[in-house]
Design a binder for these strands. Structure first.
Ligand SMILES: [Mn+2]
Ligand SMILES: [Mn+2]
Ligand SMILES: [Zn+2]
Ligand SMILES: [Zn+2]
Lengths: 147, 147
DNA sequence: TTTTTATATTATAATCATTCCTAAATCAAA
DNA sequence: TTTGATTTAGGAATGATTATAATATAAAAA
């Protein structure tokens, strides 16, 4: 990643923080800098270790909290859905799901309702393709009402 | 769900167990029966509670182990991906991922490589649609080599 | 049917990721 | 600068999952 892209992303970070009324603390900046250009989709632990080298006093709780805050303000995104517990399905044929972000309800999608994706060459090229899953993230009717 | 469908699923269960050399224990049968026709995509805890009512001595470990065994033998499937730790992404624009089932490596897919899905009416009908994610599950080159 | 042997189960302890808590520190608005 | 709100560090607490080891059981063999 070149210097200008980096500068631009940093500027955008400051802008978003201002917009969202988030203080730009040294910890937050360090965490964000660790993420810029990071293609690993890192876990909180990886980020913690990374930041720790330049910032020995940082705490785990800060990393978790900061990432959560960043996500809520559109500064980073989460790759993992339904993270807190395992969920099983007796239906083993490929099908896809609607997932409520609030209550974690999972609903099957009618297979006829969704077109089949062509597998990108990037997938087949270097890897053994197994299958793919689509999650439609929503706020369900019940959760919508509760607002 | 009618009786015949149920019978058929149970027969298939016995067949799969025979095929995979899995003993059909009362616990396994009870767990499978709980799953038949279950549309909730239940967690191990939900399954445990359900089975417990007819099988008071069952242990949590049995439920976990059984579900894992079932999954490895194609008897049930897991809805949750990348379940054990959170993973973050500095790129907030919608894009999709290749995920290695073994090492949990996550790779971005070139947006130009994948067509856009039409949002099924089932999704928009009752829910507030937010976005969707596609995970291509693979065994990556490195993991393939290690075999 | 009995014996045998591998496999499965239970109960409990251990682990791991994540969240909670609180006093102290820091930020930014006035 | 003062002030009030926000953020942090550090450690304890929680909750999900996994490991362990002794006992029980299923199913293959005799
Ligand atoms: Mn399903
Ligand atoms: Mn990504
Ligand atoms: Zn909901
Ligand atoms: Zn891999």
């Amino acid at each position: 990643m070149n210097k200008e892209t980096r500068e631009k992303l940093l500027d955008a970070f400051y802008a978003k923080c201002r917009e969202s009324r988030l203080s730009v603390t040294p910890q937050r900046l360090a965490i964000y800098k660790t993420l810029i250009g990071n293609k690993e989709h890192p876990s909180p632990e990886m980020i913690f270790k990374d930041v720790q080298s330049q910032f020995p006093m940082i705490s785990f709780a800060t990393v978790y909290k900061t990432l959560e805050t960043f996500e809520q303000n559109g500064i980073v995104s989460k790759v993992t859905h339904l993270h807190n517990t395992l969920r099983y399905d007796p239906m083993t044929e490929q099908h896809h799901h609607i997932v409520c972000k609030r209550c974690k309800k999972i609903i099957d999608i009618d297979s006829t309702e969704i077109e089949t994706l062509k597998i990108p060459s990037q997938v087949t090229k270097d890897h053994i393709f197994i299958d793919y899953d689509v999650h439609f993230n929503v706020i369900c009717a019940e959760c919508k009402m509760k607002e």
